[in-house]
Simulated scan of single mutants.
Amino acid sequence: MNMTPLNIIIDANPRSKKNSQEIVFNRKTGRRMVIQNKRYSDFEKDCKKFMPILPKPIDYPINLSCHFFVCDARKRDIANYLEAIQDILVKYNVLLDDNYNIVASLNDCSMSIDRNYPHIEITISKI
């Protein structure tokens, strides 16, 4: 197993998954359902081009470090942004899962304002 940290830079304005939901009516079931809005869905799709292609998803304990650089000073909950990134890393087969057996720690995570270059810097280190 490679011991070198994996560094990923996502050149996109960070988005929260939790605050990007909408309620729609499902005509087939006759029920309401919660889905991600278009802004989040587009963000998630945009992230794909920045994801490394690994021989197999990471399935061992790691520390996940995320630095979010946002475009303005609105108040944000960093936990919601971390949840989105973990789900994206799983979706694009960087991580096998985002449970505590794999994402064993979240150290050195931060959020800052960068009006000129909103982006996300991710470091994945084996524990």
Results as ranks from 00 to 15, higher is better:
18 K>W: 12
72 D>K: 00
61 P>F: 04
22 E>M: 15
35 I>F: 12
36 Q>C: 08
8 I>E: 02
80 N>E: 15
65 S>L: 08
98 D>Y: 10
48 K>M: 13
127 I>L: 05
89 L>D: 01
63 N>A: 05
113 I>A: 12
31 R>T: 09
63 N>I: 05
117 Y>E: 01
126 K>R: 06
22 E>V: 15
98 D>T: 04
21 Q>P: 03
1 M>G: 06
88 I>K: 03
121 E>A: 12
75 K>H: 09
112 S>A: 15
84 A>T: 02
110 S>F: 15
72 D>Y: 06
71 C>Q: 03
15 R>W: 04
4 T>H: 06
35 I>A: 13
112 S>R: 11
2 N>G: 02
70 V>S: 07
31 R>A: 12
68 F>R: 04
100 Y>F: 14
67 H>Y: 08
74 R>G: 01
20 S>F: 13
54 L>E: 11
101 N>Q: 12
51 M>A: 10
124 I>K: 00
16 S>V: 12
39 R>M: 09
24 V>G: 07
111 M>L: 14
126 K>G: 03
17 K>I: 10
112 S>Y: 15
7 N>Y: 12
105 S>N: 10
27 R>G: 03
85 I>M: 12
7 N>G: 04
73 A>F: 13
61 P>I: 03
96 L>G: 02
6 L>M: 03
90 V>F: 10
121 E>F: 01
114 D>G: 06
64 L>F: 05
7 N>P: 00
112 S>H: 14
46 D>C: 05
42 D>K: 05
127 I>M: 10
105 S>I: 04
47 C>G: 06
25 F>L: 05
71 C>R: 03
96 L>N: 04
